[in-house]
């Protein structure tokens, strides 16, 4: 055993032992941090769409609309994982479609669809997991990222999503496009990750 470990634990214990009493673990209900407007929202799908749009994530419910958006964005190479054949057909009309995410093409692929591991209605967040996304870069490097969200996997609240986290090595909640306000507080989208974040609800 490392001495550093022992040293730290013994000084932590030494610090805590003299406390006459220790603060107990607070008991709180799961919904304690829910915003006050949440109760009025009964439809999780509608709420998700509203919150996602409010944080800058475009929501599509049909493939055609999504494809025509990408066309309007003048996308050149799109990554579409199998088996979304219909989407492939739609996108092939205006750009190159690849079904393999190759790191050699990181800077060429300017749009990517990746399956999500669900979404959170309260915050309009998309949940990506290693299980659902074959390569972390695919959901991060392209300027346009479109997460495929299944209606059945929309969690109503942040607390619900926390209670149902899959055991993947990496799980990420994406709430809008990548952004910064580092330069003079001015909001710029698309710093490292996607400048255009979208989701296609299936």
């Amino acid at each position: 055993m490392s001495t550093a470990r022992e040293q730290i634990f013994s000084s932590v214990r030494a610090a805590l032992t003299p406390l006459p009493e220790r603060t107990p673990r607070p008991v709180f209900s799961k919904d304690v941090a829910e915003p006050k407007w949440l109760a009025a929202e009964t439809d999780s799908l509608a709420l998700f769409q509203k919150r996602a749009e409010a944080t800058g994530t475009k929501c599509f419910t049909d493939m055609e609309a999504c494809a025509s958006w990408l066309r309007a964005q003048a996308v050149r190479v799109v990554y579409i994982p199998p088996p979304l054949t219909r989407l492939v057909a739609l996108c092939s009309e205006f750009c190159e479609v690849t079904s393999e995410y190759s790191r050699a093409r990181v800077n060429e692929i300017d749009a990517a669809f990746t399956p999500s591991a669900g979404a959170i209605a309260e915050s309009g967040s998309i949940i990506l997991s290693d299980g659902s996304t074959p390569d972390r870069l695919a959901a991060l490097a392209p300027w346009h990222h479109i997460a495929l969200v299944s209606r059945a996997e929309i969690h109503r609240t942040i607390a619900d999503a926390l209670a149902a986290m899959p055991a993947d090595p990496n799980l990420i909640w994406v709430t809008g496009p990548s952004k910064t306000a580092d330069v003079e507080g001015i909001l710029i989208q698309g710093v490292h990750g996607p400048g255009a974040q979208a989701c296609l609800i299936l």
Binding site: P134, R136, L171, T175, K179
Partner: peptide, 20 residues
């Protein structure tokens, strides 16, 4: 409400989860 990316890291890559 939330920052754009909230990331939960639960260990290194695994054979069934090779990314990362």
């Amino acid at each position: 409400q939330l920052t754009v990316y909230t990331e939960f890291i639960n260990g290194p890559a695994r054979t069934d989860r090779p990314s990362g």
